[in-house]
Design a protein around this nucleic acid. Structure first.
Lengths: 207, 207
DNA sequence: GGGGCGATACTGACCGTTCCGTTCTAAGTG
DNA sequence: CACTTAGAACGGAACGGTCAGTATCGCCCC
């Protein structure tokens, strides 16, 4: 499982405590809240999502939620990111290496629960400022940065052309699966991500 | 401008009135509501959007809004669809014909106002059942159906391969621009849609 | 005279915040 | 090593304000 960025806790992050007095924040409360949040997200969508319901379902206080996250949107994104497994090793084949980057998203989206949770998290990221920053930070760290390394290497080996825009490639890789998750609400087929990276290589392949 | 599906009015559509007595529904009220809705969407996003604000800004009654649309989500989608211009004639070049289908979306998204409105409409379509149906109905009529004709013709002429899935092509064409609009909140470059159709032709072009 | 209209009001739910009383823990004292 | 104490996190409850969706007014126009 992923350990996301902890969404910039409003308080100065519990780990960074120096000379604190009271008890540390309860990780068990946090994970109970995240689990309850995922269930509420899947059941009620983004606009119908309520903090009160999450608190009640997790037997937690709303104040505890706001201690951990600056906004409900950030919590939603964190809850979804926890469903995304770590990326597998990429091997040597160019398509395999690119696919490996986005296959965790496909894996999370291919369960009924993950599909709904990820959909709401994407809505939160698009609608809520804090949530958007958390999500884009994750994309930057887990997708954009490794992708840049791979593409630079492929371009150096003349496997792909050099005239690509990194952000455009990200749109081409992530856009289709997100569109299917959110707008179409259609299931994600096995191999969907592999198809996207194959399409990219056909688009930008040398020659 | 587009004249959307009128979102399946809860009441049997004012035009279809037969032997009515009272006055017809006021189109001026309707367009004032849609204009107010666009402004509220751009300012407050999807979760922060409120019917009361729209009614107040349009000097209309909430009851009037619910007479025209079954849900606020459907109204949001209608408001955004009105910003999408009609598709231009496609010419003969395959890429040009495909680009012509999606260029209206790009055109609407390239203004600051349209960018924000379209973003919220997409969130509504993904989060609200009614809104999603209105949106997908528009996609089916203005994108999917003409695209199917074009692709069938191109496949017959051996310009593209035959082993494509129509829905996958739609994801590839629409996904990137929607991702940029919603998640990235980044401006849409001139020629973005042309690049997508070029990428499609490179992906499925017959060897 | 019936139906669309603006205006108002109402119910139930929710948001974000604030206040409790309790519990737990690190720092300080002897 | 006890033992105290200050401070923080906790569940729970309550708050003022907002909102969705419905209902009910008169008004006015077809």
């Amino acid at each position: 499982m992923n350990t996301p960025t902890d969404a910039q806790n409003p308080a100065p992050a519990p780990a960074a405590a120096k000379s604190r007095k009271g008890p540390t924040r309860s990780e068990v409360s946090k994970s109970a809240i995240l689990e309850a949040a995922r269930e509420e997200m899947a059941e009620n969508g983004w606009r119908g999502f309520s903090v009160d319901s999450v608190a009640k379902r997790a037997s937690a206080s709303k104040q505890t939620i706001y201690r951990w996250w600056p906004s409900i949107g950030a919590m939603c994104v964190d809850a979804a990111l926890a469903l995304i497994p770590d990326a597998p090793e990429g091997g040597r084949d160019p398509q395999e290496r690119i696919t490996a980057l986005i296959i965790p998203l496909e894996a999370a989206a291919r369960t009924g629960h993950g599909h709904a949770v990820l959909r709401v998290a994407l809505l939160a990221a698009a609608d809520d400022k804090d949530a958007g920053e958390v999500w884009r930070a994750w994309v930057g760290r887990d997708i954009r940065q490794p992708l840049r390394m791979i593409l630079a290497e492929l371009a150096a080996k003349r496997v792909i052309r050099r005239d690509f825009e990194l952000d455009d490639v990200i749109e081409q890789l992530l856009g289709p699966i997100f569109h299917r998750l959110t707008i179409m609400r259609a299931p994600v087929k096995d191999g969907f991500c592999a198809d996207q990276s194959a399409a990219f290589l056909r688009t930008y392949g040398a020659i």
